[in-house]
Simulated assay, not measured.
Amino acid sequence: MSMAWQALYEQLSALPVADLTGTQSFLLKFCKAFLVGDRWKLYLQGLGYTLELTVIALVIGIVLGVVVAVIRTSHDQQRPGHRNPALGVLNFVCKVYTTVIRGTPMMVQLLIWGFVIFKTCRNHTMVGALGLGINSGAYVAEIVRGGLMSVDIGQTEAGRSLGLNYLDTMRFIVIPQAFKNILPSLGNEFITLLKDTSLVSAIGGTEMVYFAQAVGGKTYEYMFPLLGIAVMYLILVMILSWLQGKMERRLRQSDRR
């Protein structure tokens, strides 16, 4: 804390609370929440954990979602009379997974992961990342599956007629076309995932809410810490929304060419 803020804080702290004006009370609470003891560094530390949580959960969600979407799409696009039993079993498992995850609250899932399945684990942050990733995977799966099903089946047949196997057909023909259709929905899901990291504090994970609550517990004033992290979340969401819009514009420009 700079010398000027330090002097102001000491001056305001010496005054009786009843004698403080509205502006003085505001400045005193602001100093306690962000400047005393360099507490602003705690918010930056929480920001780092939040971004780490988001990236890990994002990777898990994308990998899991794409695998589930490909399995379900492959099952649905089988020709009559050419059903693969193993694919049918995998499709059933994927349907149960998406139904259960999408049909239960995120908070309940995190509590189960943290206090039931991994109750002996001390790294609650990574448990939270796993729970967020598995939850996001179910939504990503449905988004990707919808995008894959939106691509005309003739595209797949054309790829197979050119000698491509199923994976190459999906990789080079179907998925690039589907990606343009699902980008807005995927972007919204990733923004939701970022905000859902705030729930990890419920199982003892460290992120921005965790540190805001810690500061509030020390100062007995929660308004400024919570407002501070709310602004940080808002800035992150605005940045992600800007990046999403920029990517969508580039894709539209490539279509015109």
Results as ranks from 00 to 15, higher is better:
V108H: 13
L130C: 05
T120S: 12
G133M: 01
L132M: 08
F118P: 15
N135H: 04
M107N: 11
Q109T: 03
L111N: 04
L110P: 12
L110E: 06
W113A: 12
M126F: 14
I112A: 13
N135Y: 07
T120W: 08
P105L: 11
N135F: 10
M107Q: 10
R122G: 10
P105Y: 12
I134D: 07
W113V: 12
F115G: 06
V116M: 14
S136A: 06
G128H: 00
T125K: 02
G114H: 05
G114Q: 06
F115V: 03
G114Y: 03
N123H: 02
L132S: 02
H124V: 08
L130Q: 05
M107A: 04
H124C: 09
L132D: 00
W113I: 11
W113K: 08
P105R: 08
M126N: 06
V116F: 15
T120P: 10
G128P: 03
H124W: 11
I134E: 01
F115N: 07
Q109H: 09
A129K: 05
I134G: 08
I112P: 10
G114F: 01
N123T: 03
F118W: 13
S136R: 00
A129T: 05
V116Y: 14
L132E: 11
F118A: 13
L132H: 03
G133F: 02
V127Y: 09
P105V: 11
L130V: 09
G133W: 04
L110K: 07
G114E: 03
G114N: 09
M126V: 14
K119C: 15
V108G: 14
C121N: 15
C121P: 10
F115P: 04
F118E: 12
I117Y: 09
N123S: 11
V116E: 13
N123E: 12
L110G: 00
L132K: 00
W113Q: 04
C121Q: 15
M106K: 03
V116H: 10
G128R: 00
L110S: 09
V116G: 10
L132G: 07
L130M: 06
T120Y: 09
M126Q: 12
F118G: 14
T125L: 03
V127C: 01
A129L: 03
P105H: 10
K119V: 15
Q109L: 10
R122F: 01
F118C: 13
W113M: 14
F115A: 03
C121F: 13
T120K: 11
L110F: 11
M107H: 09
A129M: 08
T120R: 09
I112H: 02
T120H: 12
V108T: 14
L132I: 05
T125I: 04
F115Q: 01
L132Q: 03
L130E: 06
N135W: 04
F115Y: 12
K119S: 15
L110W: 09
G128M: 01
G131I: 05
K119F: 15
G131K: 05
L130N: 06
G114L: 07
M107E: 04
T125F: 03
G114D: 09
V108F: 15
I134Q: 09
Q109I: 10
G128N: 07
M106G: 08
R122H: 08
F118I: 13
A129H: 10
P105W: 11
A129F: 02
R122C: 06
M106W: 09
L132C: 03
C121M: 14
L111R: 04
N135V: 04
G114P: 02
R122S: 08
R122E: 12
